[in-house]
Design a protein around this nucleic acid. Structure first.
Lengths: 382, 382
DNA sequence: TTGAAAGCGATACCAT
DNA sequence: ATGGTATCGCTTTCAA
């Protein structure tokens, strides 16, 4: 076992011939099959795209070096503006021109492998939650992260289990993962990611995840703000819409609980699907429920429900008060104008800074609460 | 040059001592700095996360091999279910258990480098266009691509120029790029990507891109369908909303042109921002415009405008007919119910199959038209 | 100032 | 049935 390495055949036949390269690597590396050491098949023309020519090999830094008449090391120095080494200006220009001419783009995988780490911040996406609130937040976050020189990669994780997802993400060796809460991570998953080099696993959602930096956005506050508002308006018997669509439980359950926590509120869960039919059915049996107000989960469900109530002859807010959440534009367009709960998300800058700190200083995982402020916006529907 | 390799120092000091490992690789590779060849610092415990311990090295296939008592080759065979090689069942189990125990996850970059290509399909995203139509399409596409074993990566490209973006994408060596039209690619950019190994550059949008597989989704059809519908209903003086929000010109201009192309329609462009104020202003000067119908770009703008009209005392469709586009749920909730144009996008399966064919057979770039069907859905607002 | 070369991790040949 | 090992492209040390 512990015998020293026996160089039965010369350690590296290829490297033995530095400059002109031995005629051809013969049938050596047979698998990747492409690649012929000379970038252009022969001529120097830009190759007018012959119909069935094998795809031209991707230029490497070695190609650039050859064209510029320097070593690969020099190419690397120039292209990365290496500060520790001084390269003459003529050489720099030669290198840059060669790179330009070949259309050279460095190979991220090779760099990653060499460096031992990436600057990838991975954002899992499953369903794009389509809300303008969310969109703006996402744009903001990406922007802030790029300013800090991270590469933002959204990884489509639709329909993956937590385990599958964690493995798939880990393969990319992201330096950080920011889970927006669509996929529920277990402590195991967090461990997988950290073993794969992730310096920060941040979850943004209604529940904390053991081992991760959790920004707990307490959805309960949303429900509480809504219920409190209704109670203050003199309502007591409050229906709370619980969407029937799967995947929303993580949000709806805490919102319901938050509403329940409000003193003076008698809360009744009300299942509702995001369809006209479901809303119609609910409206028709509404009077039998004996409720005088409803918190409709969010503005979309609220709109749906308001319409159904109105078609049923119920007056808003006279017969039933309605409040939504998310402060969508459409709420202001409804008549009566929809009261809502506005949710304050952490800014992209804040989150990006958190990532950066964790990456650089290895901040301890912790749960942060109270980052999400929820406040009722009274309009005409309550 | 052709001197045989001179092993000044043993080719690989690490490999020389498989089991106990030579104290440390001294100050050899100083840059990546981490990595100490032994996965666990010493003990076999899962390490109770000592406060300031250096991060444990990421396990590699070599670690798995060592733990399982086999070679790295064997590990690779087992973990990839290599068909060409038969490995005994006990060995397989040993390897799998070792991998499991270490929480081994293969390093995508290393595999990529070795393989010479990736299975990444890159979807640039800049603004998340937030429409449910778009979301559904995206989900669909990701799903279809994953079924074909591609890795879908959305690359946040907010605020990058075409050149910057193309370079950044090319670094990842994606096997295909599907540009959803938010970023406008030039022929140069396409060339950059193809030189970097992309087998297919597909653009999906109102305009074709030279050199790319272009799925031209002719937005003109949407405008035409809307205008035609209005003309058939007896309207002639038709306003066409042109959103003032930046980034929508690529869609709004062809839609406007499409409306203009309809015989019998007298089209007037109408700028409108996605705010209540803008809609209110427009509604107030509406009567002076002498128009009897409006195609409001999409359902959101239509809703905005309908509300403003109604607040202004204009009757719909009596005084002004309104039609939107995208067939959003909210259209059916408005009163009167909003007529709309439903847009038929190519399915994710179709697009995924197109990618796959291009990747495997190197299909020639071509423009495909007529993939987008648009049909008016009459409801009550026209 | 530049070049030679080691080596990051995984894979698939070619031996055994 | 397994193991040794060259290789992918890039960065960076060390030597010249």
């Amino acid at each position: 076992m512990s015998q020293s390495p026996k160089p039965q055949r010369p350690t590296d036949p290829a490297k033995a011939a530095p400059s002109p390269k031995p005629s051809a690597p013969s049938a050596r590396s047979s698998e990747p099959s492409r690649r012929s050491s000379e970038p252009s098949p022969r001529s120097s023309e830009p190759s007018p795209r012959s119909p069935e020519a094998p795809p031209p090999p991707v230029p490497t830094s070695a190609d650039v070096a050859r064209l510029a008449g320097v070593s690969r090391a020099t190419v690397s120095y120039v292209l990365n503006n290496a500060a520790a080494v001084r390269i003459s200006e003529p050489t720099r220009r030669k290198v840059r021109e060669a790179a330009e001419e070949l259309g050279y783009v460095p190979h991220a995988a090779a760099r990653t492998l060499r460096a031992g780490h990436t600057r990838i911040v991975l954002l899992p996406t499953s369903h794009v939650p389509a809300g303008p609130l969310y969109s703006a937040f996402l744009d903001d976050l990406q922007w802030a992260l790029r300013r800090l020189d991270y590469t933002v990669v959204q990884y489509g994780s639709l329909g993956l289990s937590g385990d599958q997802a964690a493995r798939a993400w880990a393969e990319l060796r992201p330096v950080a993962v920011i889970s927006l809460g669509e996929i529920v991570l277990s402590a195991r998953n967090v461990a997988t990611l950290e073993r794969a080099g992730a310096k920060a696993v941040i979850t943004l959602g209604p529940v904390g995840v053991p081992g991760a930096h959790a920004l707990v956005l307490d959805q309960g506050e949303v429900g509480a703000a809504a219920a409190l508002h209704l109670v203050e308006r003199g309502h007591r018997r409050i229906g709370v819409v619980v969407p029937e669509e799967p995947g929303l439980e993580l949000f709806s359950a805490p919102r319901l609980a938050g509403a329940r926590s409000v003193a003076g509120a008698e809360v009744e869960p009300v299942p509702l699907a995001r369809t006209e039919e479901s809303a119609g059915r609910l409206a028709r049996r509404w009077r039998s429920l004996g409720l005088d107000a409803v918190y409709a989960y969010n503005d979309e469900y609220a709109m749906l429900l308001m319409r159904a109530f109105q078609d049923e002859g119920l007056r808003i807010p006279g017969d039933v008060a309605v409040i939504g959440a998310d402060d969508l534009l459409l709420g202001r367009l409804l008549r009566p104008r929809l009261s809502t709960v506005r949710i304050q998300m952490p800014t992209g800058d804040y989150l990006a800074a958190l990532v950066d700190r964790a990456v650089r200083e290895g901040a301890e995982p912790a749960e942060r609460h109270g980052l999400m402020a929820a406040s009722a916006i009274p309009r005409e529907s309550t």
